[in-house]
Each structure stands twice: as C-alpha cells, then as structure tokens.
C-alpha cells in the first residue's frame, strides 16, 4: 500500500522532473561544455581550452560584478528571512492577522516589473515619497539609485519586501509548534522573549536555515530583474551584478563561451553558499536526521 503510494507520487513528479531535466539540467550541462569553446552562435564553435575562464578571471568587470552580487546577497538574505519570521510571528494570531498576511504576501504577488516601477517612484531622489518623508523629518536625503554610494542600499531596500514565500513557510512551521509546549513554558514562568528564544526558534531553526539557503540562491539570480529595471547596473557599475555580466556577454556581445564560463562561476558561488549553510546545519545538529534535512 505504502509502496504503491510512493510509486504514484513519483509518477506525479515525473513531468516536473522531466521539465527540470530538459529545461535546466541539460542546458546547464551544455553550457559547461560551451565554456571550453569560443562561440558566437554565427560561426562554428572553436575549442579553446581554459581561455574563457582566464578571460573571465582577468576581466575587471567580472570581478566587480562578483563583489556586487555578494553584497546584494549577504546582507538582504538574512534580513529577509528574519523579516519573514517576524511577520509570521505577528500574523500567527490576533484580530488583524488576515489583513497582515495579505499585506506581507502582496509584494511577492506583484509582477517584478510593476514592483520595480513602484520602487523607481518611491526612490526618486527629488520627488519620491521616501525622500519627502526623510526631508520632512529633517534627515539627509540620499540620491538612492542615482548615487553610486546609495544605489546598492536602495536596491537592498526594495528587495527586503519580497518575503512572501518565506513568510508562508514560517507561518506553516509556526502552526506546527505544539501549543502545549508554549503553554508549559508559560506555566514555568517564561515570558514572550524566553518562549521565542527557547521554544519557537529551536523548533523553526531547520526551516529558517533552509529558507536562508533558498533565499541566497534566489537572490543571486533574482537581483537581475530588479537591477536591470531600476539601475541597469549603474550608476557607473555600482549595481553591476554577475547575472548582468552573463547576460551582456551572451546577448550583447554574443560571446557565449565567456558567458558560460561566468555562468559556472555563478554556480560555484551558489554551491559555496549552500555548502556554508549545510555545514552550519551539521554543526548545530538540528533536530532532524540528515535524510530529512536533505529533503
């Protein structure tokens, strides 16, 4: 019975597995092969060994784009997961919970382009509501996306609101925490902070770690839509990220070999971040078997 059920589940997964294999895994592997060729898609590919990798490594724009990409992942990812957790905590109960849930999830449901346009307006250096607010509080008004110093914080600010999926996962995980545990802790005299620290957080730790990994991976790529629409990589490369480097190498300069080499650098960065999260999880020996964690 159980085995039959498993088989049916696998069968149901088959279309997705096939799609992922065909549309993601296969092209990724092909791009790995392409990284060893000089190829402009108009003439036949020429084998070039490691030339593309050394071209990428010595390209100052590539190095800059890696730094920018990491900056746009390392700070926002933990903040986003933390925000999702806090929001879930607040939206767990109370009379306004439905409204709150909708409000938190809404930014994630808006198409990325509309979201970007809204932020172009919010962050407008002279006429945007944010700077007007800051000015009315007699605070400094940064140039945000138009200013090389402030463009990255501006982007990070926009990205912070996209916590919808993480929020849902946290909310579901919070409902899984047995009420008895919290009640017992309360009877023992634990305040809200102690309950959060000693009951809820340990329970949610695996979920939070998983979210962190997912968020970091997502941000590595998701940053492209927003930077492309909000800053185009500017001002003067301040927000020029690795996905944009890959896109321009491939589709502006038709240098598919170099783009593939850079793409595998992106995969390597992604792999490193995942390895880091995995190591932390192992260190903490979070209350799950390894098998469960991998799932």
């Amino acid at each position: 019975m159980n085995r039959d059920y498993d088989r049916r589940l696998r069968l149901l997964l088959l279309p997705y597995a096939a799609g992922i294999g065909l549309l993601f895994v296969l092209p990724a592997l092909m791009s790995f092969a392409l990284a060893f060729f000089r190829y402009d898609s108009l003439s036949a590919p020429r084998f070039a060994g490691l030339v593309n990798f050394s071209l990428v490594r010595t390209d100052s724009l590539f190095n800059l784009s890696v730094v920018n990409t990491l900056a746009l992942v390392l700070l926002p990812a933990p903040l986003r997961v933390f925000g999702a957790f806090l929001a879930a905590l607040l939206a767990r109960g109370g009379r306004l919970r439905h409204l709150l849930r909708a409000a938190v999830f809404l930014p994630s449901a808006i198409p990325a382009t509309a979201f970007a346009l809204a932020w172009l307006w919010i962050l407008n250096p002279l006429y945007g509501p944010l700077n007007r607010l800051l000015a009315s509080l007699s605070l400094a008004t940064p140039g945000w996306l138009a200013d090389a110093q402030w463009a990255r914080p501006g982007l990070a600010l926009a990205v912070l609101w996209l916590v919808g999926e993480g929020f849902l996962v946290c909310l579901a995980a919070l409902y899984d925490v047995p009420r008895d545990l919290e009640d017992a802790a309360a009877v023992d005299g634990a305040g809200a902070w102690a309950i959060l620290r000693h009951v809820l957080l340990p329970f949610l730790a695996p979920v939070i770690l998983l979210l962190m990994a997912r968020d970091a991976v997502l941000l590595l790529q998701e940053s492209f839509t927003l930077t492309w629409l909000l800053t185009g990589g500017g001002p003067y490369y301040a927000t020029y990220t690795l996905p944009q480097f890959i896109y321009e190498a491939a589709f502006d300069r038709l240098d598919f070999g170099m783009a593939s080499a850079a793409l595998w650098a992106l995969y390597a960065v992604t792999g490193l971040i995942l390895a880091l999260v995995y190591t932390i999880a192992r260190q903490w020996q979070i209350g799950m078997s390894e098998e469960e964690f991998l799932l």
């Binding site: 250096p125 006429y127 140039g143 996306l145 138009a146 200013d147 001002p235």
Partner: peptide, 8 residues
Amino acid sequence: NRLEEAAI
C-alpha cells in the same frame, strides 16, 4: 545635474 536628470 545627475539627481535632477534621474528624477525627471
């Protein structure tokens, strides 16, 4: 200037 151009 840059900010004015970025604004409008």
